[in-house]
Write a protein that binds this DNA or RNA. Sequence first.
DNA 1: GTCCAGGGCCGTT
DNA 2: AACGGCCATGGA
Length: 255
Amino acid sequence: MSRTLKTVRDDRLEKRLVNLILTPTKLHELLCSHFGELHWWPHDACYHKDCGSDPRFEIMVGAILTQNTAWSNVEKALLNLKAAHLLEINSLAKVNLGKLTAAIRPSGYYNQKAARLKELSSYLLENYNGDLDLFFSKETPELREELLSLKGIGPETADSMLLYAGAHPIFVVDSYTKRICSRIPITKKTCLDYSCIQNHFQLQLSAHYSDQTELVSIYNSLHAEIVELSKQFCTKTKPLCADCPLSLVCKKIIN
DNA sequence: GTCCAGGGCCGTT
DNA sequence: AACGGCCATGGA
């Protein structure tokens, strides 16, 4: 086979591939039409109501508690914390470690997580006098670095806090998102690590939705949709491809 | 009984 | 840079 012929074939293949790549915008449209508009952080749960504290701090606490943990277990811990009036920066910063550990026990990894909550609340108290308005008013990249500098806060936890508590335009990548990206190619080159996926989603979506408030809303709902998709269809071991809202695109792209 | 869930840290290669 | 072990509960 001549070299030119091979190149032509490769070009065709490449063009086909480009057309078949699932963009984040398309993904959102497909999922949104199936699930409807979702907003992920469970703000309708009972511990959110009348707790007399800042819901933003509760979201930050939840972000730490849910690390590699089912949300149902996190709810129990949050209810315990609420009952003990610990969903507040000042009280959490000064509560004794044993009491805190006991309260968050149902969420698992309670020794680590207790230390992480202590670190977070102390940091906010000492550096911002517990003022979350002040804290979240900083620029996104700077804020992200600050959060990442705290022990126990990695990329996903930091980004969850930025998006869901601070309404900053940051797309959260979790194990579900990575799973979807490993099953449906979203770029020409392989893109599976945290920052590659995040950059790609943010670049593509921010070009498509220019309004910042709308962008925050899109990041929020798309993440929620990815979680639902993964839980209901694109499961870890035996995915239910037959009923999946992405089945047509997925088949087309992979085959 | 086994697997898994909205990670992240730390030590080793 | 990449990988493996570790942390721990509760529901399916």
